[in-house]
């Protein structure tokens, strides 16, 4: 993944978030407080703008810029978590040619960061329930963008059956079952955007 593709990752993701803003918000209204799409769309619009406004030397720089913007523009639970994930991926990517195992390292670093910030584990009906299966897939079968997207989709859909024990949805206990986790869905689009960016010429 070259620097242009990394930038495209962010801008594509922003596009998806703008398109899915109302959908994500309506998911959050069901088991949260109805702002996830709004938060993500607001923050990543700024991140995409920041990424487009500059020329970067490396992918790590792009991710760092996005991380800092997201951290200060998203807010809520998802802001620190996506901000941390991007920042940790930037750090893991630093000085590397991003391909194969480096993706696994980046995802692992992101997951560690998310876990540390949010004190959640898999199975608690959060974005981790998309990130972790994706990492496992990459670790076991190597990095393949199409597979990553497929795994993310399945994992995202599987959050429907989970009972939330972290985040706002946990207040609803069993009533959180039967609804997709908004953060899992927004994470799915992150991997969709990654696959799209990698299909493009650098």
């Amino acid at each position: 993944m070259n620097v242009n593709q990394t930038a495209a990752w962010i801008t594509h993701y922003n596009q998806h978030l703008q398109d899915q803003k109302d959908y994500l918000t309506s998911l959050d209204r069901k088991i949260g407080d109805g702002d996830h799409g709004i938060n993500m769309a607001r923050g990543f619009a700024e991140a995409a703008k920041a990424v487009e406004a500059e020329t970067f030397e490396t992918s790590a720089d792009v991710l760092k810029k996005a991380a800092m913007t997201v951290m200060s523009k998203v807010g809520g639970a998802s802001g620190p978590l996506y901000g941390t994930a991007l920042l940790k991926m930037s750090m893991a990517a630093k000085g590397k040619d991003i391909k194969g195992d480096v993706f696994a390292d980046m995802f692992e670093a992101a997951i560690d960061g998310i876990k540390q910030r949010g004190k959640a584990e898999t199975g608690e009906k959060t974005m981790l329930d998309v990130w972790v299966p994706v990492l496992e897939e990459v670790k076991s079968s190597g990095f393949d963008a199409a597979n990553v997207e497929e795994t993310a989709q399945k994992a995202m859909e599987a959050t429907k059956d989970l009972t939330a024990t972290k985040g706002r949805a946990s207040y609803l206990k069993e009533r959180s079952k039967g609804h997709l986790d908004p953060g899992a869905v927004s994470s799915y689009y992150l991997f969709v955007s990654l696959a799209e960016a990698l299909k493009e010429e650098g």
């Binding site: 109805g34 709004i38 607001r42 807010g75 809520g76 639970a77």
Partner: peptide, 12 residues
């Protein structure tokens, strides 16, 4: 003050 029902960001 964060956005409506959204925690403010660390920089703020």
């Amino acid at each position: 003050s964060g956005e409506v029902f959204t925690s403010p960001t660390p920089d703020q």
